[in-house]
Write a protein that binds this DNA or RNA. Structure first.
Length: 117
DNA sequence: AGATTGACTGCAT
DNA sequence: CATGCAGCCAATC
């Protein structure tokens, strides 16, 4: 059978799978930026991370909500809604947002794989 | 093969 | 803090 690496219908894994793997490494109650993920994965830019996150299948086990932009804000993605859902999920994990809807990356920002706190 | 878009980043104004 | 511009690379048309 042709091994076509068919991941969830569309898109080949490879790069995506690598990004998902890093995303799964984000501890609960912490958030990482697209640039951070890209740096850990290597050979990939924040755009690709964002693109990969947009392609995350629902319930795939990837904490896509823990991935936000470098400004500590939640990006407004296609569809318009969902941004508030992401915030609710993060708050449920212990991440605190300020009145402007921003997260203090110096406190909740993930420092990297294996490095906790 | 070329043009367009995109859950980004960083710096300049 | 808002807006604009350049760099970046993969997916889509």
């Amino acid at each position: 059978m042709g091994d076509r690496e068919n991941v969830s219908g569309s898109a080949r894994g490879r790069l995506y799978e690598r990004i998902y793997d890093v995303a799964r490494g984000i501890p609960k109650g912490r958030v990482a930026t697209y640039g951070q993920i890209a740096a850990i994965v290597g050979k990939c830019t924040p755009r690709q991370v964002g693109y990969a996150m947009a392609a995350v299948p629902f319930g795939s086990g990837v904490p896509w909500q823990r991935v936000i932009n470098a400004r500590g804000t939640v990006s407004e993605r296609a569809g318009g809604d969902g941004r508030e859902v992401q915030r609710a999920l993060l708050e449920a994990e212990g991440v605190r947002f300020d009145d402007l809807g921003r997260v203090d990356l110096s406190v909740f920002g993930w420092r990297g794989p294996g490095l906790k706190r």
